[in-house]
């Protein structure tokens, strides 16, 4: 029973994305949510590659049996698509900062992987990249709520962008410290690190449930 549960959790990075994707078949999403739509579609392929690489690592040649670079790639794509989503919300609050942050992140990525880390590191994903991505997305999430608190209320508080932002907020809140300490944990407590990744996967499922709810709440059919 536990083995079945573990397999389900292991593959959750893939099947969780199918939840919002299945809604895309029935509901056309408005232009505002297009970056999120692109994210779930691209993430499905990346996560499929991640999990397949891990599962068949013993078969693959040594050069190709690490999936860490795919986590790095996923992180970068997620950041840029969600920052585009927040900018497209056109909230008149910290607009300049919101537009500058993606460029700063790009500069950080280039500098980090040119001088400090290896993007295709065989042994570890980039904790630094993932934690920076998480904290920046958390910033976007918090500014969204702060603006809404001061703005005049809408008739429907729980609209599609609320659900997506809340899901993202929960995901980055839970995972910021996981990402930050992950490399350290893999060195000192490997088994604990592997178990901890289950917490990441569960939060990823929750994240995708909120994205699905956001797609469901959008009014275009």
């Amino acid at each position: 029973m536990f083995k079945v549960f573990q397999i389900v959790i292991d593959w959750s990075e893939v099947w969780a994305l199918l939840i919002p994707i299945s809604l895309l078949l029935f509901r056309k999403q408005p232009a505002l949510l297009k970056p999120v739509v692109f994210y779930v579609c691209i993430a499905l392929f990346i996560n499929l590659a991640i999990d397949l690489t891990w599962k068949i690592r013993t078969i693959l040649p040594a050069k190709y049996n690490s999936n860490n670079y795919l986590y790095n790639l996923h992180s970068i794509i997620r950041f840029f698509l969600f920052s585009t989503f927040f900018i497209r919300l056109k909230q008149p609050f910290l607009t300049t900062i919101k537009k500058i942050i993606p460029f700063c992140f790009l500069a950080f990525v280039i500098i980090n992987f040119c001088f400090y880390e290896n993007f295709f590191d065989y042994w570890k994903l980039s904790s630094r990249l993932l934690s920076v991505e998480a904290i920046l997305l958390l910033f976007y999430t918090l500014q969204y709520y702060l603006f809404k608190i001061n703005d005049s209320p809408e008739v429907n508080i729980f609209n599609s962008d609320f659900w997506i932002v809340t899901g993202l907020g929960i995901y980055v809140t839970i995972n910021f410290f996981i990402f930050l300490l992950y490399n350290e944990l893999t060195i000192r407590m490997e088994h604990f690190a592997i178990s901890l990744w289950n917490a990441h996967n569960i939060s990823y499922v929750i994240f995708n449930l909120f994205i699905a709810k956001g797609f469901y709440e959008s009014r275009e059919h």
Binding site: I149, T166, G169, I170, T173, F176, F177, I178, M189
Partner: peptide, 23 residues
């Protein structure tokens, strides 16, 4: 490290949920 992780996640979650409830 374990303690830092647990406390960190708990604190972040509490802050986030508080902000959400206030909102």
């Amino acid at each position: 490290i374990r303690l830092l992780l647990v406390v960190g996640i708990a604190a972040m979650l509490m802050l986030f949920i508080s902000l959400l409830l206030i909102f």
